[in-house]
Design a protein around this nucleic acid. Structure first.
Length: 277
DNA sequence: CGAAACTCCTGAGCGC
DNA sequence: TGCGCTCAGGAGTTTC
């Protein structure tokens, strides 16, 4: 399940191999992805060089001289570099050939996408995205402002790409645990300090996950096939009934808006405790 | 506008 | 060994 740290890890793995390399051939095997894509739309990219590869939220932006390819890994997608030609594997929907490498896009569930775009700046899929969590734009005052009037649970709120990009189901649970906040607290009901603590927790968790190369639960690997190691640092996600590593209370699992949600009921009280100062 | 339901899809895991 | 069921979930779209 690629979230921001996993996508960042994939980008970092792709860049040194692909930037300043030209696509020599394109093989599309299945185009019915999140949005349909066809050979005709991809054909103009043959022979063109990749100038840069960047990330926006969980999207990967492959920049060419004019226009680019916009990618998303959905929840089961992967981009994998291979030095040698090999037979396509099941769900290898697209393969880009470069002089020294092959790039395979594999996605069993086909929630992912690859989209030829004229430009990224004003593309509708990117235009309304919230700030990057690891920038200064994502701050205590920003978060307080962005969530004013929002009555949904704080977990749903931080997973909303218009509020902040890149926080998926795993890191939402982890960040709320780190901030000591119950996932169902209304998004507009946090104290000023809690908005600060939450924004800091999100930055801390995502930063640590990037440094660990992402989280491999089942099958995530980077562009070179290596797993990520952040799973060892998960404190609540997937740990239902296991003791909280801070207080010993068994971890609870809830379903919030259809998503598995893990928390410690002691460390994350639903009603913030009154503190005597 | 906000909020919630709905939708896409395949593979893993489970009970029998 | 196989069948049928449930679950996993990013995020765009639809509905109210």
């Amino acid at each position: 399940m690629p979230e921001l740290p996993e996508v960042e890890t994939v980008c970092a793995g792709l860049k040194p191999h692909l930037v300043n390399n030209a696509i020599t051939s394109i093989t599309l095997r299945r185009g019915d992805l999140r949005f349909p894509v066809n050979r005709k739309a991809l054909a103009p990219f043959r022979g063109r060089s990749i100038l840069d590869i960047t990330r926006r939220g969980k999207y990967i932006l492959m920049h060419f001289g004019e226009g680019g390819l916009l990618w998303h890994l959905g929840m089961s997608g992967s981009l994998r570099l291979e030095a040698r030609r090999r037979p396509p594997r099941k769900h290898d929907h697209l393969t880009l050939r470069f002089p020294d490498t092959y790039l395979h896009f594999n996605d069993p569930r086909r929630f992912g996408l690859v989209l030829p775009v004229a430009g990224f700046a004003d593309h509708p899929l990117l235009a309304k995205l919230g700030p990057e969590p690891l920038t200064r734009a994502f701050s205590k005052p920003y978060l307080e402002r962005a969530l004013a009037g929002r009555r949904i649970g704080i977990k749903q709120a931080i997973m909303d790409n218009k509020v902040v990009v890149g926080v998926g189901n795993i890191y939402a649970s982890e960040a709320l645990f780190a901030a000591g906040l119950h996932p169902l607290i209304p998004a507009n009901a946090l104290s000023r300090d809690q908005y600060g603590k939450l924004s800091k927790s999100i930055k801390k968790i995502l930063g640590a996950a990037i440094r660990a190369g992402g989280t491999t639960l089942r099958d995530f690997t980077d562009a070179n096939g290596n797993p990520g190691y952040f799973k060892q640092q998960l404190l609540v996600y997937g740990r239902v009934h296991a003791p909280c590593l801070r207080c010993g209370e068994p971890i609870t699992k809830l379903t919030v808006a259809g998503r598995s949600t893990f928390l410690c009921r002691v460390c994350q009280p639903r009603v913030p405790r009154l503190r005597v100062s």
